[in-house]
């Protein structure tokens, strides 16, 4: 059984519609640690040692956040800057994260079509995630495709519920080892892994 750490970052959670629903029940799931970053560090005073300990105690690391300006919210960026230390996370002596799995759960306002050369975001999600993918690679982690909730500006409650249910099923499969890593690595989105098994 794999232990999963969800690092959740949303600076204005009180205004959230989609993410508020998506995380429902996560904290109660067995084998999953739900870590609400903005709640833990409202003043950005990240406890580096505690964060590193948290990382060491898990096998799968998930960044769960809205895709603000094609990146993570500010606190999660600061978290990367401070927690992923040289000599700990990367470098010849930095092997603490070796072979852990890593992926993003992100929500975007724009629809899937917007993230293409023809759309107004021009780049694909995978292209835009390149900095994070490379970060994971440098930390010798296994970078999995992201789980993406597109089109949140016009999403219906039923659609959100479907995303939530599918996402949590995915997490359960990963947790229980009922997951084909090689197959998943071929995909653009983790969403499609579920499509495959459906």
């Amino acid at each position: 059984m794999k232990k999963i750490l969800i690092i959740f970052a949303h600076p204005a959670f009180q205004k959230s519609r989609v993410n508020a629903r998506l995380i429902e029940g996560l904290a109660q799931m067995e084998g999953i640690t739900f870590h609400d970053l903005y709640q833990a560090y409202p003043e950005f005073d990240i406890d580096i040692a505690a964060e590193q300990q948290l990382l060491t105690g898990h096998d799968v690391i998930v960044f769960h956040h809205p895709f603000f300006w094609y990146s993570t919210p500010a606190l999660l960026k600061e978290w990367q800057d401070l927690v992923l230390e040289h000599g700990w996370a990367y470098g010849s002596q930095g092997n603490q994260l070796n072979d852990k799995w890593f992926f993003n759960i992100i929500t975007t306002g724009g629809g899937a079509a917007a993230y293409s050369q023809q759309g107004y975001n021009f780049y694909t999600i995978r292209q835009l995630l390149a900095p994070i993918e490379q970060t994971a690679r440098l930390c010798k982690m296994v970078f999995l495709p992201p789980y993406v909730v597109h089109g949140t500006h016009a999403i219906t409650p039923e659609e959100i519920e479907a995303y939530r249910e599918k996402g949590q099923r995915l997490l359960t499969m990963i947790r229980d080892g009922d997951f084909d890593l090689a197959a998943a690595m071929q995909l653009q989105y983790l969403n499609d892994y579920m499509k495959r098994s459906d």
Binding site: P11, A12, K15, G109, G110, G111, A113, G151, T152, H153, A154
Partner: peptide, 23 residues
């Protein structure tokens, strides 16, 4: 009044939300 408009999607939804549901 809440002024953190960068984190507020109201106006975005007004503009793009309609576009998406139209398309």
């Amino acid at each position: 009044k809440h002024k953190d408009l960068g984190w507020d999607a109201t106006t975005l939804i007004e503009e793009y939300g309609k576009m998406q549901s139209d398309s």
